[in-house]
Amino acid sequence: MNADCLFCKIVAGEIRTEMVAESDTAVAFRDINPKAPVHVLVVPRSHHADVSALAGADPQALADVIGLADQVASDLADGQYRLICNVGPKAGQTIFHAHAHVLAGTQLSGF
């Protein structure tokens, strides 16, 4: 845990949010600035700066994040989804705790 990390505070229950799913190693909650009808963040319970750091430190936890993302898309949408992981500020990462964005619930346009 990182005392200054927003997502660590959410995982610890210090900040309330709309949780949609959880596992032993990850939690999923709605994004406060959604870009699609279903926009959920899936974060590991353990603190790692980004998904690359998570993959290096705990590949099983990364697999669990992806598995929970798939469960969320199946539960909240039709199982079709876009999974986005931003790594670094130039890629758009603003919270430096590994996380994946699940976008679903509509026809998503290309990049």
Rank of each mutant, 00 (worst) to 15 (best):
G79A: 08
Q93N: 07
S109G: 13
C8Q: 10
G110A: 08
L83R: 05
M1E: 14
V27R: 10
K9W: 14
R30C: 06
A12F: 05
L54C: 07
A73W: 05
G105I: 13
F29H: 04
L108M: 03
A61P: 07
L76G: 10
P44V: 09
A3I: 11
V72E: 04
L68K: 00
E18S: 10
V42K: 01
H39W: 07
D50W: 05
L83K: 03
T17D: 06
V43Y: 02
T25A: 12
N33V: 13
P89N: 11
A104V: 02
C5N: 02
L54K: 01
V51A: 07
V51D: 03
L76S: 10
V38S: 00
S74W: 10
S52A: 15
V11A: 09
N86S: 01
C8G: 11
L6R: 02
A49L: 11
A28E: 00
A28H: 01
V27D: 04
D78I: 05
R30S: 03
L103D: 08
I32S: 13
A98P: 03
P89Y: 11
I15R: 15
M19W: 13
H101Q: 05
G88Q: 01
P37D: 07
T106I: 11
Q93G: 08
F29R: 06
H99E: 02
G67W: 00
L83W: 00
G13F: 15
P59L: 07
T94I: 14
G79L: 07
A100Y: 02
G79Q: 06
D64L: 07
L108S: 00
R16I: 12
A3V: 15
V72S: 04
P89H: 15
S74E: 13
L83A: 05
A12P: 09
V65T: 12
A21F: 03
D78F: 06
K9M: 11
V43M: 04
K9Q: 15
A49C: 07
I15L: 15
D4Y: 03
V102Q: 02
S52F: 13
V27Y: 06
A77I: 06
D70N: 14
R45S: 09
A91E: 00
P59M: 08
K90S: 13
G56N: 12
C85P: 02
R45V: 08
A21N: 11
F29N: 05
V102H: 04
A49R: 14
G67R: 05
V27W: 02
E18D: 09
D4G: 12
P59R: 03
G79N: 08
K35T: 10
K90I: 10
A12V: 07
